[in-house]
Every structure is written in C-alpha cells, then in structure tokens.
Amino acid sequence: MSSPELTMITVKDLHKSYNGNHLFKGISLDVKKGEVVAIIGPSGSGKSTFLRCINGLENFQKGEVIVDGIRLQAINRSNPSKEDIEVIRKIRLKVGMVFQQFNLFPHMTVLENIIEAPVHVLGIDRNIAIENALTLLRRINLENKTDSLPEDLSGGEQQRVAIVRSLAMKPEVMLFDEPTSSLDPEMVGEVLYVIKDLVGGGMTTLIVTHLMQFAREVADRVVVLDKGDIIETGLPDEIFINPKNERTKSFLSRIY
C-alpha cells in the first residue's frame, strides 16, 4: 500500500442504506494523490452514490471518508452539528464535482457562473476572478461565450463551462459523475478532450462513466462496482482484457 502522505482519498468501511435498501455494506477504497480512477459497473450498482458520499452530497450511516486528512464521519443529516457542516464545507473546497446534467446556474452568464464561487465563497477580488475565468475559458475555446446565458449554449459547451467552473475553485480532487451521459454523441468528444487535458495535468480524479474506451485511456486504475460492492479493482488492461471476476466478465460482455 502507498504511504499515508501520498493518499488523497480514503473511504473506509462505508455503510449506507436508504428507503430500507442496504446499498453499501462496508465498502473501502484508497486513492493516491494524482491518481485517476474510473468507476464502472451496471446501472443501479451505486457508482454515483459512492461518488456523492465523498463530497457529502449523500449521507451514510457508518464508516468514514477522509479527503486530504479531513475526516468525515456518519452525520445526522436532518440536524447536523456546526462541526459536521464545517467538515463537509472543508472537503467541498478541496473537491470539485461535475454532474451529468451540467447544473449551470441559468440566471447567470457563463462568466458569472465561473466567478460566482471564487468571489462569494473564497472572497477573491472580482477583477482577479474574472481574469482567472477568462484564462480558463480560453483553454476550452469558449472565450467568445463569456456573456452568453447557459440556455444559449450547446450541451457540450455547457459541460465544458461546468468543468471550468469547478476548476476555478482550484480543487485538489475532481469528481465526474457520468459527465457525457446526457450529451448528443457528436458533443462527447469535446468534453472528453477537456477531461483528458485536465487529467494529464496530474489532478486526482474519480470518474463514473459508461465509456469503457475512455476509461481505459485515462484511468490509472479501474474499479468495478456491482450491487453496492467493489467486486474487482485493477489496471485498465487487466480489467478490460483479462477480468477475473465472473460478474465483471458478464458486465463487460454486455457492454462491448
């Protein structure tokens, strides 16, 4: 195992149930600094829920999540203590997240979407935040859409803006929750291109995806989830060429 100071994310013995459905029965995972992990598996296996537990969008009943030394334990979601709220906020400041539905703020322009959190959460000077935002927009070739509203952008453009909106907070971890699943096929490429660029820069990344080829290209490690359990984990080539677990085999055979 890697030494502790190089570990970015630790998930330990996570238990989660909702609506009487016991989804995670003690799931654990370590992610090293700079590591890119792809999470694959059949739908309903808990991939998205697992990702959302890491930044506190989902609660869990038992176990813990540690991000860069910040420890999040099971909390009372209906009546959280001040300390719990503070821990979740600290984690979220380190972790950026990109959603399947983009979730851009429709009442704000592209630029306003990007500078919103840097200005109002980090307290960065508005002009500096705008400079940073423009740099990011140039990187994704959308500097001409600065003043557009999200509704005037294509799906692919919206998702690229959503990615740089997260990056504007200078996170140390990025979580991608099926980032291309609601895109038209011709727009998938441009989004994947941005993600690859980002991953190439050494960002610790967890990606839930249905695109096996993409997972194989970008991931350092692939985790296979089924029915709330990690059934196999390994290098992309091992998993995709020579899976050991029978359930992995049947899942992959259904996809290819």
Binding site: R92, F99, N103, F105
Partner: peptide, 17 residues
C-alpha cells in the same frame, strides 16, 4: 431542480449562500 442546490454546495457554498 435539485441539481442547482447540489452544484452550489459542491462549489463550497453554504446552504444559506
């Protein structure tokens, strides 16, 4: 949509903000 609040929270905003 629920995603609006989730996006805001995941950007580090407090619920109030």
């Amino acid at each position: 949509p629920k995603g609006q609040m989730e996006a805001a929270l995941s950007l580090g905003m407090s619920q109030k903000l």
